[in-house]
Nucleic acid binder design. Structure first.
Lengths: 173, 173
DNA sequence: ACCACCATGTAACAGGTTACATGATTAA
DNA sequence: TTAATCATGTAACCTGTTACATGGTGGT
């Protein structure tokens, strides 16, 4: 069973929808799936040759008029197999590694105003995220579930932020 | 303004509560704050000398009877300053980088049973986390807020998982 | 006899990041 | 003329991981 990294899985997943260049993948990642996993451009260009070397993708040069030549990548049967294997692995619950919680944990050392500002900015970001998610196009069958997940999460964070702000303010009085 | 990494901030934060050895820090991180950020033991021992070199901590050797000698670290005024600076920086909203969402996003490629299993295992883990959080001792003033954050999050994930499972099952019929 | 705890570290690697380099085309 | 888009990559770095190495003490 061939182990693949998350970035490799994302690229293979996108390639399973059709032939793409590194640039296309970067664009696609930037819009659709990039919401959940956004590899850096340089990472994409670094990973693609590795995928090819491992037999998970093939590439062909395509010359263009008025545009630089590009390499179009296609997923192979082996690549499909690796992707399915990755899909079948049970994902671990990723608990939050956010610094906000740490800053609260050590919050006694800071001014309450600072903590309130952090909580507020977090809420604003969560709100913005919620709006972006609500405006997102329907990504087909299962993509919608992922979007709902994000919405649940954003709502929970907004609720928490409201309660937290009130509690810090009350403690401060 | 001296930039410090999250791991450095956690260590300085713990050191601000008293003199500790690398081993003590590892134990403390493992129990209290480790819930939100758990550096590897080797990372702790790697970071401590760096903190000392940058003037954020001082160490002294303490010989012990029947025990190996240890280095006790103490935070310096400069370290306090760096920690306060870190605390004041607004934390960015860390959006989820979990693989579950990715697997859903590419869910068309897998059997619905696989997705349902993923969702269920996620819910079980969220439930276990919730129970652990509920059983956690009161970590003082602000620690409680962090715990509430975790609880909000866990509840949201359980809610989402219930809805998701129903929806995948319905689509499958 | 064996395992867990105390105590500190090294080495190798994994999986990313930002910044830089290049260079033509097209729209405002 | 200025900026954005297409198109591919290199180099240096950061932050963290797992696995390994060492060795005495204390409990069951």
């Amino acid at each position: 069973m061939a182990e693949i990294s998350t970035t490799e899985a994302v690229l293979l997943g996108l390639l399973s929808r059709g032939e793409m260049s590194g640039y296309d993948l970067w664009r696609a990642a930037d819009t659709s799936v990039g919401f959940f996993w956004l590899p850096a451009k340089s990472a994409i260009y670094a990973v693609l040759p590795q995928l090819e070397a491992r037999g998970f993708a093939r590439s062909r040069r395509v010359a263009q008029a008025n545009r630089p030549a590009k390499k179009m990548y296609r997923i192979t049967a082996a690549g499909q197999g690796a992707l399915l294997g990755w899909l079948a692995e049970a994902p671990a619950l990723e608990r939050e590694r956010g610094t906000l919680l740490l800053k609260l944990f050590f919050g006694d050392l800071a001014e309450p105003e600072v903590l309130i500002a952090h909580v507020r900015s977090q809420r604003e970001e969560a709100r913005a995220l919620k709006q972006r998610l609500e405006a997102l196009p329907d990504e087909g069958s299962y993509g919608t579930l992922a979007i709902k997940h994000g919405l649940e999460w954003a709502r929970a964070m907004i609720r928490w932020a409201n309660a937290a702000e009130a509690e810090i303010a009350a403690r401060q009085q």
